[in-house]
Design a protein around this nucleic acid. Structure first.
Lengths: 139, 139
DNA sequence: GGAATACTGACGCCATAACGCAAGTATACG
DNA sequence: CGTATACTTGCGTTATGGCGTCAGTATTCC
């Protein structure tokens, strides 16, 4: 499975937190999830829980076989599914706990990252990666 | 094949959980998140915490003004940002707690939804919305 | 009123990717 | 062997969406 599920070690530094957040927001996984057909397929596999073949998923979702094969491959490449070839059939399986963990990590990263007491208005706002030209007005 | 994909009977609770999950996986929000530029902009606003104008974000992220305006509008439409117009400037703000809550809900929905003890192999699997045509094998 | 600021919307260009078909590959079975 | 099954991959079409430009709108300030 892909690295997306690994927990980054986060020393308690703002820059680390930002890095963690940015990494979790890495678009590969989200892009894979954001496509309706893929979401449907993933949903199907999550609901099922056991490994499924391409044919099964295609029949289940009533989607063209070759499209399902391609989408499953995309989902697996994004780390959302594991795949195992046995004989001539490939068994795809959704790792629900890993996926749930990923989203919880993302939520935690957002919590850690967000300035609870507001951003200092007129100096020392590290909102942005590398730009210190426009410090200024607040509504 | 794949009896697992049938849903002979759908208990109300299970179908509710599925509905909840599917609603959370609604692609609007994920699609908005899955675009690198938008992720950068959202990240910037999350890190800042306070409301920011389009001009500020554009300068901060070094992105073309009108693009930023468009992306901010997209993010707001997807529910990822709140916007408030005051005078001639529009203040966009990221609601970090809400976003974190969304991802936690998604994680919870996945946990609830996934069959902890595995999917019964040969009968009574309600993985799929509406298809009961095939019987078959499991790995 | 007129100019400046802050944003929005419309047009076209282009890259990416989904879709469907069909041909190709790999494995199993008789 | 040859055939059937289970995928994969390549190709052309279509659709979506990001990007840049520029014109338009709304509000403020002089």
């Amino acid at each position: 499975m892909a690295s997306v599920f690994q927990h980054p070690k986060t020393p308690k530094q703002a820059s680390r937190k930002r890095a963690r957040f940015d990494r979790l927001l890495e678009p590969e996984m989200l892009k894979a999830l954001a496509e309706p057909t893929r979401a449907q397929i993933l949903s199907c596999l999550l609901k099922c829980g056991r490994p499924c073949s391409v044919t099964e998923v295609a029949e289940c979702c009533s989607i063209d076989f070759s499209m399902v094969a391609r989408h499953l491959s995309t989902l697996a490449r994004a780390g959302l599914l594991s795949s195992e070839k046995k004989g001539r059939t490939v068994w795809y399986q959704a790792d629900a706990p890993a996926l749930a963990t990923y989203f919880r990590d993302l939520a935690d990263a957002i919590d850690e990252l967000s300035p609870q007491d507001g951003c200092p208005t007129d100096d020392d706002c590290d909102c942005c990666p590398s730009d210190a030209s426009t410090k200024g007005s607040t509504p």
